[in-house]
């Protein structure tokens, strides 16, 4: 087995490097835009506008209630037609990943905000502090501590979810595995290589997130 792994690595490492590159690109884009979109959706869902509430409620329920693979197929088939642009498959899949993660992020942020003791809101109101200031200076700084651990988890899910893009041969790590196993007929050693790479990536991400959380805890 070790010999197989080494043999595959010596011959096909460039395939894995390409896979790593795309997994990182997909993850970074998904995490970045997913977080921004998710934050926007949170505020839309928490706003007083009933229509916005209903739309975001539906959005979140649909995304969370259907498989991510189905969403990928949907955007892959529908998006190029909808915007009438000859879009690369990769872009459609990235949109699906962003949309999917935004719904989960939105729920994490909303839960974190609502977990702040209601007395904090009442105290700010009793002082006559308007809602936007209350959010910014009282609620959000406290909510962030509830949000961060959960959002870190979500980032790791998002990184791993990019593997589903291999269904569309997008070029990330699981696609690399499919390429290598077809060429070598040795699927298991190749799978172990890919597994180890994923582990290293998720560990690195966890490490970064932990360090960020610690820094935030110190500033308090």
């Amino acid at each position: 087995m070790i010999n197989d792994i080494l043999a595959i690595l010596s011959k096909y490492s460039y395939v894995f490097v390409e896979g790593i590159k795309w997994t990182i690109i997909l993850s970074v884009i998904t995490i970045f835009f997913g977080t921004i979109l998710g934050t926007l959706i949170t505020f839309m869902k928490m706003s007083r506008n009933k229509i916005l509430n209903a739309v975001t409620y539906l959005y979140i329920e649909i995304i969370r209630g259907t498989p991510i693979l189905l969403q990928m197929y949907f955007f892959w088939l529908w998006l190029p037609k909808a915007i009438n642009v000859n879009m690369s498959e990769r872009r459609s899949i990235i949109v699906a990943l962003i949309v999917n993660s935004s719904a989960y992020i939105a729920e994490i942020i909303r839960a974190g905000i609502q977990a702040v003791d209601s007395g904090q809101r009442e105290a700010a109101k009793s002082l006559g502090i308007r809602d936007s200031y209350m959010m910014r200076y009282v609620i959000l700084p406290q909510a962030i501590k509830n949000i961060l651990p959960a959002i870190g988890n979500q980032f790791i899910f998002m990184l791993k979810n990019t593997s589903l893009a291999s269904t569309f041969f997008i070029g990330e790590l699981m696609t690399s595995w499919r390429t290598v196993q077809t060429a070598t007929y040795k699927p298991i050693p190749a799978l172990m290589i890919v597994g180890l790479i994923y582990l290293m990536m998720t560990w690195t991400l966890t490490l970064l997130l932990n360090r960020f959380e610690r820094r935030l805890a110190e500033s308090d």
């Binding site: 007395g119 308007r130 700084p141």
Partner: peptide
């Protein structure tokens, strides 16, 4: 109501001081 609340101080059973400040 915010303008009026500014002139009505309130103190709560559980203090509700802002822990982040």
């Amino acid at each position: 109501i915010d303008l009026h609340r500014q002139k009505m101080g309130m103190v709560f059973q559980h203090f509700n001081v802002f822990p982040n400040l």
